[in-house]
Simulated assay, not measured.
Amino acid sequence: MKVTSLLAGTLLLAGCAEQQAPQQAVAPPALPVAPVHTGTETTYQEYPASIEGVVNVEIRPQVTGVLERILVEEGAAVRKGQPLFRINDAPYREQLNNAVAAQQAAAGVVTSAQVEVDRYAPLVQNKVVSDVQLKTAQATLTVAQANLQRAKAAVRSARINLDYTTITAPVSGYLGRLQTKQGSLVGPTDAQALTQLSDVHEVHTYFALGEDDFITFRNQYAGRTLQEKLRRLPPVALVLSDQSTYPTRGKVDVVAGQFDRTTGSVTLRATFPNADGLLRSGNTGTIRLPLQHPNVLLVPAAATVELQDKVFVYAVGDSNRVSRHAITILGKSGANYLVGEGVKDGDRIVLQGVDHLQDNQIIKPTAPAAASAAPGKATASSTLY
Rank of each mutant, 00 (worst) to 15 (best):
T111D: 07
V109Q: 09
R249N: 05
Q361C: 10
V339C: 09
S172G: 12
F217T: 04
K310E: 07
A191L: 11
V343K: 01
G223D: 08
E52C: 11
L185P: 01
R249D: 04
V316F: 04
D190K: 04
R249M: 07
L338D: 00
R93V: 09
H356D: 05
I329Y: 04
L178K: 02
K152Y: 12
Q23M: 09
E46F: 04
L96I: 14
A158H: 01
V316K: 01
Q125N: 10
Q308Y: 09
L233E: 00
A380R: 15
Y44Q: 04
L357P: 00
V109N: 05
R324N: 07
L297I: 15
L84C: 08
P91W: 14
E46C: 04
Q182S: 11
L148R: 10
P48D: 10
Q138Y: 15
P290A: 09
Y92I: 12
T195L: 05
A101L: 15
Q182K: 10
H325F: 05
R150V: 11
G173S: 11
T189I: 11
N126Y: 10
T42V: 15
V72C: 10
A154N: 08
A222E: 04
D190L: 06
R224V: 06
Q361Y: 11
Y221S: 02
A25P: 15
N97W: 06
T248I: 14
S319K: 11
I362A: 13
L298R: 02
V255Q: 14
R177K: 10
E41G: 01
V115F: 14
N360Y: 12
T189Q: 14
T180F: 02
H356N: 10
N126F: 12
P22Y: 11
T328L: 15
V200N: 04
V186P: 01
